[in-house]
Design a binder for these strands. Sequence first.
DNA 1: CGAGGAAAATAT
DNA 2: ATATTTTCCTCG
Length: 697
Amino acid sequence: MPSTSFPVPSKFPLGPPAAVCGSGETLGPSAPAGGTMKSAEEEHYSYVTSGVGSGLPLSSAHPSLPAPCHDLQTSAPGVSSAGYGAALDGGPSSYFLSSGGVRPNGAPALESPRIEITSYLGLHHGNGQFFHDADAEDVLPSSKRSPSTATLNLPSLEAYRDPSCLSPASSLSSRSCNSEASSYESSFSYPYASPQTSPWQSPCVSPKTTDPEEGFPRGLGACGLLGSPRHSPSTSPRTSVTEESWLGARTSRPSSPCNKRKYGLNGRQLSCSPHPSPTPSPQGSPRVSVTDDTWLGNTTQYTSSAIVAAINALSTDGSLDLGDGVPVKARKTALDHSPSVALKVEPAGEDLGATPPTSDFPPEEFPSFQHIRKGAFCDQYLSVPQHLYPWARPRSPTSYTSPSLPALDWQLPSHSGPYELRIEVQPKSHHRAHYETEGSRGAVKALAGGHPSVQLHGYMESEPLTLQLFIGTADDRLLRPHAFYQVHRITGKTVSTTSHEAILSNTKVLEIPLLPENNMRAIIDCAGILKLRNSDIELRKGETDIGRKNTRVRLVFRVHVPQPNGRMLSLQVASNPIECSQRSAQELPLVEKQSAASGPVLGGKRMVLSGHNFLQGSKVIFVEKAPDGHHIWEMEAKIDGALCKPNSLVVEIPPFRNQRITSPVQVSFYVCNGKRKRSQYQLFTYLPANGNALFLT
DNA sequence: CGAGGAAAATAT
DNA sequence: ATATTTTCCTCG
């Protein structure tokens, strides 16, 4: 017999008036994860569906794309590459080229042999421009966690955040309410349409540039990404040079973000800047120049310079203000994304800026630059201070252009004309992501046991295309790259799908060939999910999102279909949400079934509890509480281990009361492990022995 | 490697 | 005091 205690045996109130009957109901209300998820999912769908394409030509992606193409040689025939290249060339390509050329590093990189096979290397090479790599590396360390060296001052950091948040962000904040700032950005993109990359850029740029830190963070972010991949894989992340720094750091978690950052910086030279700028005014001073140079420098110097100029202009004005407030935060995301590459590409935009194609962007096609109008977007979506605008706009001076491919946070349609990008097999709703400190936890799987699959319908050409995959947000109304998760490329005998990694701004993108011979269908068995430490990401300068409880993601697939007119039609589709955290022991358990009572007394019931991760040594405590909250009785249930199934537990409440039960009683229970309460009280209706319900749904 | 559990560390 | 996150450990 389980121990039973009856603190107060008195009466058996029927229970709260509105007693929830049945576990089922209970679930509804409480249902933590599950319920939430679902709803979320639904939402997503709707969003997705509705999503209009907007084109943002940022670039971040581009760079990578092109490169990849080259690289692709290996895996994918030139097609893809051709496609990209063509596209690029067509319009913006020049930009690309230029950018590439510009970059000191870039060129070499490209030329040099790329062996992409290694995801890591491959990426870099592929991207060609990825100076990121380097950066990334540097960054990585930071991401990892630098111990606390003293690098940053918290204050500064905070300052950064706050400021940004405040002004521009404020609007964001609202959004943030929802959840994150990033959405903000996204929204931008939408309306924005402006010609250049604008929304971002301006914000982004300025912010970034502004703060050295930003640079860092971003960098870090990128690095992080890279790094993770690199290291990634799992086991030990730290190998690279950079690592050292962080390794050391790593040992202890950086309690303060600041420190972390520094490290990140360390990785690079960047580190230096962080401090200074931050402290004084985060954004303000240091801003642009510093960051850009160091950071962007490698890659895109070209662009960066332009950007910088632009930024400066902007900043100048209100740089301080902006810097502090607006840009950073608001944009943070944007910035992040765009950082190096993106910025460059976009160029055209600004000029165009004025002209906004507008609303209708052809969702799919992004000629090269579509831009959203800032204004519109702002107005509609955010209530951002107008002045901000101005700033943003200013950046236009530069015009980079090329918008080649839409930025990752651009919302794109899943179908257009004859084409439709569709997820044929959805991933399971739960996939525990792995940390850099862990080994891979494998590829995302499908519910049925296989793997998710995606197919492009309506494509009749013989040229292979490249399917892009990245980890996107699940909760936001707008789909955008998830700041705390990155796709992780999985290779091995069990993986049949070839893939190539690329990094756009701070987002790792897996490029998978879509072959005509396979009906443009790809089985995604090469995609795992890497979790980045919240503390590392939140440090990033522009990052406004918070990682806590932000554990759901979506797999986002994109394909760019070359059009006869030289344009590129970009389609995107996102999967159902995927919960990436370890199943919580606190998940609320539910009464799946309850036997008829053994007699007309309270107790004597056997029940099947489910939906909880019953840990070893778990105890289930049943309790009936009076309206005033006091426990009328409570007792530990007897656990029938023999009947346990995964995630379910059979328990028994032994008969303990003579009093006859004639009507349903509201009883609740909770699970505890040792002395710790592992779950909240879950209400269910304890049915009378003569009740008709043997089973609760 | 790939999971699944948990303890340790943090954040609220 | 809890709720979550991140690091460790163990098992096949």
